[in-house]
Design a protein around this nucleic acid. Structure first.
Lengths: 194, 194
DNA sequence: CGAAAATTTGACATGACTCAACTGGAGTGG
DNA sequence: CCACTCCAGTTGAGTCATGTCAAATTTTCG
């Protein structure tokens, strides 16, 4: 499927349609790019110059703490936006790494182009508003769950919510996403199996 | 201070200005309301009919799990929006309770009025987009922290980020916000003091 | 003042972590 | 095709942070 189709399909999920001129403006401001497996879209410490929409593939967003331990924050499959929003908006170095777990095709937009897009196509504000609303709701549920539920239950919730991701990602990265060690996840899996 | 002043001051924090007609539209769609201490703005299981902007006072958003344990998700001081967004947007019963820890003055808007506001004042999309962006960033940092850092450090982060809230809220609610028991928080405090 | 709530403390239990060793499969080079 | 290595995953033993239960103490507030 052609990359822009993914993007416009995502717009239409939120019942947001654009005029032909707007479509041209949108297409002219995004840049298409392809990453190989294990390649980095963004590295901790770098300036975030683009926000990135995933058309195909799978990414992971993670940070490395003072002790050198990786913490996976999100997986980014098709039709997700990835990037360090804080870094992007506030022009500070990124706290996060984003790398590709599979060969990945993306569309990218720079901050100044996004701002010009908001002016040219005001309805983009609506699109991103809804997007952030949803992201916020989903993150609130995850945060609540991580504060109050044991690892077993969080694992089950993850499996239920992202069955397709669970199958594409090694266990130790799922453990990191859940905030537990690979050993703990392994024991949880044994407990579920037995 | 007059309630609408708080609201417009919040708009202006994001460099968003409105024409006199827009200001009239905004003022006509929000309803002013006052809650006493301990009164509920929203109860778990109810339909969320309004989103609520806090002009004065302090709220807490919490949920009650299967075991009957309360989990505080957010505190809502002046110039915060509170409410169960998911319930509000999707017209499902709320998962959360919002009550007032102090006497609280708010401005409320219903879903249909907010939708009509987006049409009458398209720039409101921009305002809420930025609001959700920021809320999302802040929540992502909290979620990351709750997954990877010990309780002591989370407590210190909370104190640093919301010093004014820490002073206005009983400890056991801070403990709940941090995802630990009041006993654990008490021990952490002793450790810090000694 | 007196009741109720908040906080602290102690003893013990438990879930998750750490460290270390082991297993098993995927790739690599002889 | 067979070692060999590498990495993910598993398992075990001991430790630590935090939870649970119960009780004492302090604070709040009618």
């Amino acid at each position: 499927m052609e990359p822009y189709e993914h993007l416009f399909r995502n717009f239409s999920r939120y019942d947001i349609c654009f005029s032909p001129e707007e479509i041209l403006a949108i297409e002219s401001l995004f840049v298409q790019r392809k990453f190989r497996k294990n390649q980095y879209i963004l590295q901790q410490g770098d300036m975030t110059r683009h926000e990135t929409f995933i058309c195909r593939g799978l990414t992971r967003t993670y940070e490395v703490d003072e002790k050198g331990v990786e913490h996976v924050l999100f997986f980014g499959p098709e039709e997700w936006w990835v990037g360090d929003l804080y870094s992007f908006l506030c022009s500070v170095p990124s706290q996060y790494n984003v790398d590709c777990l599979e060969e990945t095709e993306v569309l990218q937009i720079t901050r100044s182009d996004l701002e010009s897009l908001y002016v040219q196509v005001p309805r983009m504000n609506q699109y991103f508003r809804i997007l952030f609303q949803n992201a916020y709701i989903s993150l609130a549920q995850r945060a609540s769950s991580s504060l109050s539920k044991p690892a077993l239950q969080r694992y089950l919730e993850f499996q239920e919510k992202y069955p397709h991701i669970g199958a594409r990602v090694p266990d130790h990265q799922i453990a990191s996403y859940l905030g537990i060690t690979p050993q703990s996840l392994s024991r949880i899996r044994r407990q579920l199996a037995g």
